[in-house]
């Protein structure tokens, strides 16, 4: 969406436009009347795009919310495998990157090229740090057998948090290899440990009672059926994965911006590309602001993690 020069553009001396910079006309696309119109259109374009993004993430958030209501104990159990320290660190990193991003926008507006490049680099650094930490988390998940399909080993899970956990784990309740097979759907078996589809329906049908039931279930988190925990991790990877894809795209765009900024493209009156990319960056940040409490903080504060 960054304005670039195109051959054959027509320059209109639109009356009333009071931009008196000689280069303004080079920035203006031929199909706009003046820079202000172009500026508003581009900004509104990014906002519309963000509206579509909200709706897209919305589908995932809804699925998450629905199954969280249905399978609260599984959600609590799954959440306790996540590392809150790393999650908090990532929240901090991302919020901080939003600050560096607005500083970049500010530098562009005040036409400070060095500062702009610096802040953009800082933003990229923080974005990379976020992805790095995320990669560490995912690697740990993989090692612990928490990744559905790729590496799903409930029998090797180590439970964190409560000291009495190992005592509370009786053989019958420990997920076994046979459950794994079911969870993959290869050996469907109605008699497996856990809630049948009908029961889960009823739980969903009565959220008021479900709340209380979930509360009781929290006392004994090991009872959550493996396939429900898998659902949690599936949604966890979908949501953080989609978010990470947005981060990677954002890093690519900010990288391009940095390169262009170092050539002075945005510090001579045309600061809008920085502003627009900033909008995107903040949106990705906002998604994480919601993801963090929803995914990490379900089962209370449990610094154990991996």
């Amino acid at each position: 969406m960054a304005p670039t020069l195109e051959p054959g553009h027509i320059v209109e001396h639109a009356h009333g436009a009071d931009h008196d910079h000689a280069h303004d006309h080079d920035l203006l696309h031929h199909y706009f009347d003046d820079l202000e119109q172009q500026r508003e259109a581009h900004s509104l374009g990014m906002w519309s795009f963000l509206v579509t993004e909200v709706m897209m993430f919305g589908g995932l958030f809804f699925s998450y919310t629905l199954y969280r209501g249905m399978f609260h104990s599984a959600w609590v159990e799954g959440s306790r495998f996540l590392n809150i320290v790393l999650g908090t660190a990532n929240t901090f990193v991302l919020l901080f990157s939003s600050l560096t991003m607005v500083m970049a926008v500010h530098s562009a507006q005040t036409r400070k090229r060095q500062a702009l490049v610096g802040w953009l680099l800082a933003t990229m650094l923080l974005g990379t740090a976020f992805l790095g930490i995320k990669a560490v988390e995912w690697t740990n998940d993989y090692k612990e057998g928490l990744v559905p399909v790729l590496s799903w080993h409930p029998e090797e899970w180590h439970f964190h948090g409560e000291p009495e956990s190992s005592a509370a784990m009786s053989p019958g309740e420990t997920p076994t290899a046979s459950h794994v097979g079911e969870a993959h759907g290869q050996a469907p078996d109605e008699t497996r440990s856990g809630v049948s589809a009908d029961v889960s329906r009823e739980m969903a049908a009565q959220p008021g009672q479900g709340e209380v039931g979930q509360n009781e279930a929290q006392q004994d988190v090991r009872h959550a059926p493996v396939n429900q925990v898998m659902l949690y991790f599936f949604l966890y990877f979908c949501m953080t994965g989609l978010h990470a894809i947005h981060m990677i795209i954002g890093l690519g765009v900010v990288g391009t911006l940095t390169w262009m900024a170092s050539k002075g493209r945005f510090t001579s009156g045309n600061d809008q590309p920085v502003e627009i990319v900033g909008l995107y960056w903040h949106f990705v940040d906002i998604v994480w602001v919601f993801l963090f409490p929803l995914l990490y903080l379900i089962g209370g504060f449990h610094p154990g993690g991996h």
Binding site: Y67, M70, F71, V149, N227, M230, L231, F234, L235
Partner: peptide
């Protein structure tokens, strides 16, 4: 995974 499969808990 089972997100839409009642056998695995999905709806």
């Amino acid at each position: 995974i089972g997100i839409f499969d009642p056998k695995l808990g999905g709806d």
